[in-house]
Amino acid sequence: MNLTAIIGYLAAFGTTASFLPQAVKTIQTKDTSGISLPMYILFTLGTLLWLIYGIMEPSLPVAVANAITLIFAATILVYKIKYK
């Protein structure tokens, strides 16, 4: 594995792991009052597009990170809409 791939995987891990605390807190409390609905819609859409890009390129770090982040972001978005 080359340095570029290592950096890609580390970046993917860091940005993906950063969503876990927010997702867990949102699921536990169902409190989404501090979350902007338009921002999360755009963010979730952007994450989906990055996932598609990572698949088409192909870039495994981009695809895997965005697939996991998409799950977290979509979960928070669903809670934001459901528990508005």
Rank of each mutant, 00 (worst) to 15 (best):
M1P: 07
N2K: 04
N2G: 14
N2H: 04
N2D: 14
N2R: 08
L3G: 09
L3F: 12
L3M: 14
L3T: 15
T4A: 14
A5E: 12
I7A: 05
I7K: 11
Y9F: 15
L10V: 15
L10K: 05
A12E: 00
T16K: 05
A17T: 06
S18F: 08
Q22V: 07
A23V: 12
A23D: 07
K25R: 15
K25S: 11
K25M: 09
T26P: 07
I27Y: 12
Q28W: 08
Q28A: 13
T29K: 05
T29N: 04
T29E: 00
K30F: 09
D31K: 10
T32N: 10
G34M: 05
G34F: 09
I35Q: 01
I35K: 07
S36G: 02
P38F: 02
M39S: 14
L42W: 08
L42C: 13
F43Q: 11
T44E: 01
L45V: 15
G46V: 07
L48R: 03
L49Y: 08
W50T: 11
L51Q: 05
L51R: 02
L51C: 09
L51H: 00
I52E: 01
Y53V: 06
G54R: 00
G54A: 04
G54H: 04
I55L: 15
M56D: 09
P58Q: 00
P58L: 01
P58R: 00
P58D: 04
P58V: 03
P58W: 02
P58S: 11
P58Y: 02
S59A: 06
L60Y: 13
L60F: 13
V62F: 04
A63L: 03
A63G: 05
A65R: 08
A65W: 02
N66S: 05
A67M: 12
L70Q: 09
L70K: 02
I71P: 04
F72P: 10
T75C: 12
T75D: 07
T75V: 12
I76Q: 10
I76Y: 07
L77Y: 08
L77E: 00
V78C: 13
Y79A: 11
K82E: 08
K82P: 00
Y83T: 12
Y83E: 14
Y83A: 09
K84C: 12
